[in-house]
C-alpha cells in the first residue's frame, strides 16, 4: 500500500488506457466482419476484389436487384418469415404449458419427464435428419413450410421447457394459492399470475426461438423443396462459388441478417437473464 500518490495516479491512467484499448480491439473484432459483408453488398465486383480493403467506392444496388428481383430471395424471405413466426408461436405455446405442468401441478414424474426432455437436446441432429425426412414425406408435409417449422419447434422445445421451468420455480407458490382462493381456475392462474411474472423469460424464449428458426440451415435444407427454400438455404447455394457471386451473396446475407441483428440489438438483455434464470439467484 506504500505507493506515492503520483505513482498510483500513473498506474490508474495506464489501467484505464489498457481497458479502453481492449474494448476498442473487441469493438473492431466485432464490427469489421459485419462492415465487410455489408459494404461488399454495395460494391461492384471491381471494388470487392482488391488487395487492400477499399472504403471509398461508388455504391451500387445492383447486387440487391440481382438477388431479390432476378433470383428468388424475395420468396425465400417470405418463406423464412412464415416458418420463423409459426415456429415461435408453437414453441412458446407448448413450452409455457408443459413447463407450467411440470413445475406447478405437483406431478410425481415431473422431474423424470423434464430430464427426458433434456436428453432430447443432446441427440445429434444428423441422426434425426433422415427419419424426419421419411416421416414428413409419409404424412405429406415434405416440401411444405410446415415441415421445417415442426422440426424447429421440436429442436427448440427441450431447452425452452428447461428455461421456462427455471422461471416458474421462482414464482412464489403463495401467489398462485392466493389467486386460487380468490376463485381463479388453474388455467386462469397460469395466464393471469404466472405468465405476467415470467415475462422476461418469455422475451428470451421469443428471441431464441425466432432467431434459431430464421437462421437454421440443415433441416430447412433437407425438408424443403425449391419453392419453399428459406433464406439460409438460399445463401448456402452461394457458398460453393464464392468468387463469382460475392456481391450478390453479400447482399442476400445483409438482408437476411438485418432483421435478427436489429431485433437482437434491442432485446439481447433478456436473452442472458432468460438463459441462466434461477441459476444465478443463489
Amino acid at each position: 500500500m506504500a505507493v506515492s500518490p503520483g505513482a498510483s495516479k500513473a498506474k490508474a491512467i495506464v489501467a484505464r488506457t489498457a481497458k479502453w484499448a481492449v474494448i476498442g480491439l473487441f469493438f473492431c473484432w466485432t464490427v469489421i466482419p459485419i462492415i465487410i459483408v455489408v459494404t461488399n453488398a454495395f460494391k461492384m465486383p471491381l471494388d470487392i476484389f482488391t488487395k487492400t480493403p477499399t472504403f471509398i467506392f461508388q455504391p451500387t444496388l445492383d447486387n440487391f436487384a440481382t438477388a431479390f428481383i432476378k433470383s428468388d430471395f424475395l420468396t425465400y424471405f417470405a418463406n423464412s418469415t412464415i416458418v420463423a413466426l409459426t415456429c415461435t408461436v408453437f414453441v412458446l405455446g407448448l413450452s409455457v404449458f408443459s413447463a407450467w405442468g411440470l413445475t406447478s401441478l405437483r406431478l410425481r414424474p415431473a422431474n423424470w419427464i423434464a430430464n427426458a426432455f433434456m436428453v432430447g437436446k443432446l441427440v445429434p441432429v444428423i441422426s434425426m435428419l433422415l427419419p424426419l425426412f421419411v416421416l414428413m414425406r409419409m404424412i405429406g408435409l415434405r416440401g411444405s413450410l410446415l415441415a421445417p417449422a415442426i422440426a424447429h419447434v421440436a429442436l427448440q422445445l427441450p431447452f425452452m421447457v428447461w428455461m421456462l421451468m427455471g422461471f416458474m420455480r421462482d414464482v412464489p407458490p403463495e401467489l398462485e394459492q392466493a389467486a386460487m382462493i380468490d376463485g381463479c381456475t388453474r388455467l386462469q392462474v397460469l395466464f393471469r399470475i404466472v405468465v405476467p411474472v415470467i415475462l422476461p423469460g418469455l422475451a428470451a424464449a421469443f428471441i431464441l426461438a425466432m432467431q434459431y428458426s430464421w437462421n437454421e440451415l440443415l433441416f430447412s435444407l433437407q425438408l424443403t423443396t425449391f419453392e419453399t427454400y428459406t433464406l439460409p438455404v438460399g445463401i448456402a447455394s452461394f457458398v460453393g462459388a464464392v468468387s463469382v457471386n460475392a456481391g450478390v451473396a453479400s447482399a442476400a446475407a445483409t438482408v437476411t441478417m438485418t432483421p435478427m441483428v436489429v431485433l437482437g440489438f434491442f432485446i439481447q438483455k433478456y436473452l442472458a437473464v432468460g438463459t441462466i434464470g434461477g441459476a444465478v439467484k443463489g
Binding site: F26, I34, V37, L217, I235, V239, V242, M260, V261, Q268
Partner: peptide
C-alpha cells in the same frame, strides 16, 4: 450500449458467418 453492439454477431446465421469468414 457496448453490450448491445457486441452482441450483434450472435444473431447472424452460421451459414452467413461461414460466408463472411470465407471472405476474411
Amino acid at each position: 450500449i457496448l453490450r448491445a453492439v457486441f452482441s450483434m454477431p450472435l444473431f447472424i446465421s452460421p451459414i452467413i458467418v461461414a460466408l463472411i469468414w470465407r471472405y476474411m
